[in-house]
């Protein structure tokens, strides 16, 4: 039985038995090499579910939207499961609100180039870190080299060059906020950019305001980022957002010890919500 058949069968069983109220997976898109997220409440729709190498979307964030209807079943790979763990730690959902069907990730492909997605090539955890049941067996998922290679490239540039590089990045941003909306760490009830009355960030699109948004986004998710790479994938302008996220992660690692966010529900102390009396002192 393929993973897809197993997912369909389990989704049907879970929905029929009433164990879950909604089930989240992927369905085929218009094009043969495209999928799109699918939320079903009826067991009869379970046959629409697909699982193939074009399941590029991370599903976890939908759990927040449908959790009010009852327990949510969803298919989780490494990234989805870490996103769920993230949302549980952030108290967006509770562990008992979700039923997780784990599946080993084969690595997803870009629809256009048919090559492994950048986020999948960089992924460190293909297998779910948290699930209620696992379809098939956990796969081999070697941890790729060069987690901070992109960051090192930028750091090697001279200061004016770096400045120009990021100015060109911010000049391209159209502030569609897709990076925020897809991020499992961005779960504020009201984002600061939507707080028009406070007017944290101006609505005009220019380098200064875009930088304000970009830097704030990175600082807000900094120590919680699960490195799913969705922000970079969804960006319509193809901005290198992971270069910013990973810079923070790299510094956290260097300064406060090796750390990887959201690998289990219990280890929830992120470096920026903690302190150590013996932290390095740079500001004396």
């Amino acid at each position: 039985m393929t993973a897809q058949d197993a997912i369909r069968q389990r989704a049907k069983e879970l929905l029929e038995s009433g164990e879950v109220a909604t089930f989240i997976g992927w369905e085929a898109g218009r094009f043969h090499n495209q999928t799109t997220p699918l939320v079903i409440t009826d067991a009869a729709d379970a046959d629409k579910l697909v699982f193939n190498e074009y399941c590029v979307n991370t599903l976890a964030k939908y759990a927040r939207d449908v959790v009010a209807r009852g327990k949510v079943g969803l298919v989780v790979r490494g990234c989805d499961s870490r996103a769920i763990v993230r949302m549980i730690i952030d108290q967006v959902i509770k562990r008992e609100d979700v039923y997780l069907i784990g599946v080993a990730c084969p690595g997803m492909k870009d629809r256009k180039t048919d090559e492994l997605l950048k986020k999948c090539a960089e992924c460190r955890h293909g297998n779910p870190v948290e699930c209620d049941e696992l379809i098939g067996e956990a796969g081999e998922w070697p941890i790729p080299e060069g987690r901070f290679a992109e960051v090192a490239e930028i750091e090697a540039m001279a200061q004016p060059e770096r400045s120009r590089y990021f100015e060109s990045v911010y000049a391209k941003c159209i502030r569609c906020y897709a990076c925020r909306d897809v991020c499992p760490c961005c779960t504020c009830r009201e984002c600061f950019v939507d707080q028009r009355r406070e007017n944290w960030v101006g609505k005009q699109n220019n380098v200064a305001e875009n930088r304000f948004y970009g830097l704030t986004r990175v600082m807000h998710i900094g120590d919680r980022c699960i490195e799913c790479g969705e922000c970079e994938r969804v960006c319509p302008m193809d901005l290198p957002l992971m270069k910013l996220n990973r810079k923070v992660i790299q510094d956290l690692n260097n300064l406060f010890g090796e750390f990887e966010s959201s690998l289990s529900i219990d280890d929830s102390v992120e470096p920026l919500i903690a302190y150590d009396l013996n932290d390095r002192e740079e500001f004396m």
Binding site: T36, A178, R180, D181
Partner: peptide, 28 residues
């Protein structure tokens, strides 16, 4: 309902759309 549930509510579609024309007036 079925359609909107998967929407992220980002502005990508409206900003890449050649006909979307909504604007907001603000000041500095």
């Amino acid at each position: 309902e079925n359609l909107s549930i998967k929407c992220l509510n980002c502005g990508t579609c409206t900003y890449v759309c050649p006909t979307c024309h909504c604007f907001d007036i603000s000041q500095e």
